[in-house]
Amino acid sequence: MSALIDYTLHLADNSLILGQRNGEWCGHGPILEQDIAITNISLDLIGQARSLYQYAAVLINDSELSVSSKASSPLERRFGGEVSEDSLAYLRTEREFKNCLLVEQSNGDWAQTILRQFLFSSYQYYLYQYLQTNTDTTIAAIAEKSLKEVSYHLRWSSEWVIRLGDGTGESHGRMLKAIDELWRYTGEFFIPADYEKELKIDGASLKYEWSKKIKTVFDEATLTVPPDIFMQEGGKQGRHTEQLGYILTELQYMQRAYPGCEW
């Protein structure tokens, strides 16, 4: 049960943190249509996160764990009762977030935001396809529902990678810089955490399709897939880059300043 809770939180955290990052573009997009596009993607991602947090909350509240070790778990102590989608998003600390490192990386320029979205949407696309047939029917249903949205994100971000990569000298150069910055965070997708192993979620099997997709789009964008380099990992286990702290400071500001406030 606890593996399923961890995995559900991992999926939810991926969506919430990327949604929050993209949301920072609100009112700052390069042109109005793309400002609307990136924030619409945020909305989809936060919607997915909500479904997943709601499910995680049910699992936590129903689990024996919450009854027996209520007093000893810092999570439960802080919540002082029932866990909800809000408490999971607003009251957990950095080490409790299980998102991949890629999604917490800063927006940088438009090229970096686009590349981050493309690398992640293509991963999410194959992951949700795979999860659609998961034995856990709730996870399968959320994956099936979200896949339609993710396909749209993937298409949009692929087109932008090509437009920038095969664009001007300036835009091409910025894409190269973005690849330099972000590629090292993609290896983690395919290294299973303990909870994935326990659930027999075979993320490594997605690597082939994902790499093929990246190569197809990069080829058309006149970009080169980097050779094997050292890959950062740890996000799935709660070991994050310094970026996540800043995101949570903003995301959780109201709950930190006015604990328990509602509006």
């Binding site: 793309q34 619409n40 949009w156």
Partner: peptide
């Protein structure tokens, strides 16, 4: 089409 994304999640412009 002007934009794949519109005023709400369900619409394009």
């Amino acid at each position: 089409r002007i934009s794949e994304f519109g005023s709400t999640a369900c619409k394009a412009l």
